[in-house]
Design a protein around this nucleic acid. Sequence first.
DNA 1: TAGATTGTTAATCGATTAACAATC
DNA 2: TAGATTGTTAATCGATTAACAATC
Lengths: 212, 212
Amino acid sequence: MKQNEKISTAVIRRLPRYLRALEDLENSNTERISSGELSKLIGYTASQIRQDLNHFGGFGQQGYGYNVKDLKAEIEKILGLGTRYRMVIVGSGRLGQAINSFIRSYSDDFCVTSLFDVKEDLIGKEKSGVLIRSVDSLTEYLKDNPTDIGVITVTKENAQSVCDKLVAGGVRGIWNFAPTDLDCRADIPMENVHLSDNLHSLVYYINHPEQI
Amino acid sequence: MKQNEKISTAVIRRLPRYLRALEDLENSNTERISSGELSKLIGYTASQIRQDLNHFGGFGQQGYGYNVKDLKAEIEKILGLGTRYRMVIVGSGRLGQAINSFIRSYSDDFCVTSLFDVKEDLIGKEKSGVLIRSVDSLTEYLKDNPTDIGVITVTKENAQSVCDKLVAGGVRGIWNFAPTDLDCRADIPMENVHLSDNLHSLVYYINHPEQI
DNA sequence: TAGATTGTTAATCGATTAACAATC
DNA sequence: TAGATTGTTAATCGATTAACAATC
């Protein structure tokens, strides 16, 4: 990153999109790509792509464009990929299990070390090779097993208390799927996936197709 | 909406957040709320809240604020809630099942009429009371059963062809969970939930906590 | 009436786009 | 060298915030 420039969240949210495009390009054995071609692929303007990338450094070459492999590696480095993140998922219902299997199949950079739940009949079982423990043991578990990311897939009512435990247990980030906004009372990042909000926006546009 | 003003997506994405706050307020029997109080609850500025709402009409009263029940009803009307949306979910793996059970428990406004999958051993089974059909029968099914929203929870590789079938079958909106950007080749809205992108942004902020 | 709070206009801020000199 | 394309500055656009008159 150039100096200590503050990068807007808009830019950060586009980085994963660049990464996906570059993975596709790598898979199709494309060696280089210009901002203009990338623009056609992902829909951002060429100007914006160059601006975005230049927040972090000059990765391109005039008259050539960007080397796909190199740019991909740079973006992975910016995001902080290439190292292993240990995760726990609290809430072992269908959504927790879905996230667990997604993570497992998605990338070696992320590893779910344990699931948690309150339901007696789930505790002790395994899902996709991961043991479900009692939420009562969460604090103890985090003490013994330093964890990077806590995933919250419990009900709205239980989400805040789970969040508090995760934060107290020293996780570095929270991925929240509960349909509520949590106060993590600490300077750690929280990523919310509010399915109902997404669905509601979709419904708005279904009813106002002229506004798409 | 005032005249035929085009509302920015930023505003639309905040509406569901207002709705959630108003539901909470209604549940705690709060009758009225000012933009200032709402600001404290959800973090947007009071000015922004008033601006946002005023795109759609003057729902408040000087010196009083907003009536919680009324404002909630207005926002539901703006979004297009209060009517039933028929949905199909294509991809009956853990994520498809999770979405299915989420929808079912979430609201009567949304109804999943069928699941679909390619896997022989899943076809014919029921999940949360919904039958899993073969993807081969999707086109036929949509012809016989007009459907509002198509949910895509299949692999990246199969997502585009599923999308095409859904669009051809006349769905009015697409909710895509496949980790790829789809071309829906029609003027229908698509809402993407890119879990890997969310996780990647979270990782960025974990590694750059000073930027939160 | 006085106080509170909206609706709305104007000012500010930030993000996107355009333009072009630098340079591979 | 000529052509292509970046990096970067300047211009534009849009969204957020501030301010305040209107009014309940």
